[in-house]
Simulated assay, not measured.
Amino acid sequence: YRATDKGLLGGSIELVVAPHGSGSKWLANLSVGDFVDLIGPLGTAFGIPTTPANTMLIGGGYGSAPLFALAETLKNRGCRVDMVLGASTANKIYAPLEGKRSVSSLTLTTDDGSAGIHGQITESIPRLIREFNTEVIYSCGPMKMLESINRIASDFDIVHQCSVEESMACGIGVCMTCVVPVRIDNEVKMLRTCIDGPVMDGAQIIWNAENEGGNI
C-alpha cells in the first residue's frame, strides 16, 4: 500500500488486508508488536511520466489502495491527477476521503447508487477522459474491470498501466501459477505477475486468452 521513511523504528510499510482466506485472516488477527517475516520488494511498480502529464487513476474496490501513494508521487512530479474510485456499494469504496486530499479531482461510482454516480465505474471513464484531457491511465482492481478500461484506453489511444489481479502462490516466480499471457513484438509470452508484474502494459495483455485457443 505505502512505504515511508519515518516511524518509531526508522520506517514503516502500510498494508491493506481484506480478511477472506486463512492467510489474510491470520494477518488481520495479529497484534501490535507481533513480528512478521516479509520478502520484498517484489515485482514491478507503476512507471512515472518523465514530464508532467494529465493522469487518471482508476481503482475498483480495495484495488484503490496502491493508487494513493502513486497519486502523491505524480502530484510531486507536476502531473494533474484525477482519481476514479468505484465499487458495488458505498462501504466497499476504500478511503475516499484520503483520495480527495491527494488528487485534483475525485469521482466516485457505485453499482447500486449508494455513493457518487450510479453505475459501473467504466461507464463514466470516456466522459472523464474528454473532460480532463487524460494522457495516461493507471488502474488497479478486478481483471474484468481492467479489461474494460483497456478497451477504452485503446479507443482513445491512451497509455494504460494496470496492476493485474492474479492469485500468487510463491511470490518469487517459481510456481508459475500467476502467469498472464501477453503479446510483445507479435510473439506470445507468459509473464509472471509476481516478478514481471503486477504492473503491466494493458495494450500487451491478451485479455481474451481463453478465446484464442491454439494461438497461445
Rank of each mutant, 00 (worst) to 15 (best):
E187T: 14
L74E: 08
Y94M: 09
D112R: 02
V36T: 07
E165I: 06
N29A: 15
G214C: 11
D5P: 00
D82Y: 11
I205H: 07
G11M: 05
S24Q: 07
M83R: 09
K92P: 00
P41E: 01
I172V: 13
I172D: 04
T51P: 03
R192Y: 08
H160T: 04
E210Q: 12
K100P: 04
P52A: 09
V159C: 07
L146R: 03
F156G: 04
T4A: 06
V199K: 06
C170V: 08
M200L: 12
C175T: 07
C162E: 11
L9V: 12
P49M: 06
I195G: 02
T109L: 00
C140N: 13
T122Q: 14
V16W: 04
G213Y: 12
R80C: 08
L15W: 05
M200A: 01
E135H: 10
E210V: 15
A203Q: 14
I206W: 03
E135W: 05
A169G: 05
W26N: 13
I172C: 03
G171H: 05
G86E: 00
A53V: 07
N208P: 01
V103L: 04
I216V: 13
F68N: 01
T193G: 04
V164N: 06
A71I: 05
P198I: 06
S22C: 06
S105I: 05
G10T: 11
L74N: 06
A18S: 14
A95E: 15
N91D: 15
L106E: 04
C178F: 15
D82V: 15
G116P: 03
E135K: 14
L42W: 03
N211R: 10
M145G: 02
V179E: 11
D5F: 13
P52I: 04
E187F: 02
G33R: 09
A71R: 09
V103E: 06
T50K: 15
L74D: 05
K75W: 01
P96W: 00
V174M: 11
H160I: 07
R183N: 13
E98H: 06
G10L: 13
G47Y: 10
K25E: 07
M168N: 08
M83W: 11
V199L: 04
D112T: 09
S163K: 10
R77W: 08
D34E: 08
G10F: 11
V179D: 13
G59D: 02
S114M: 06
E212S: 10
L85W: 02
G60I: 02
A209H: 15
N208A: 13
M176D: 11
G173T: 06
L85R: 01
V199Y: 01
N91H: 15
V36E: 04
A71E: 07
S105N: 15
P96F: 03
P198H: 09
V81Y: 02
N76V: 05
S124T: 08
P19F: 09
S64K: 03
A169Q: 10
H160C: 10
N150P: 09
I93T: 01
I48V: 14
R101K: 13
E135C: 07
I137Y: 08
S167D: 15
M83P: 09
V199S: 02
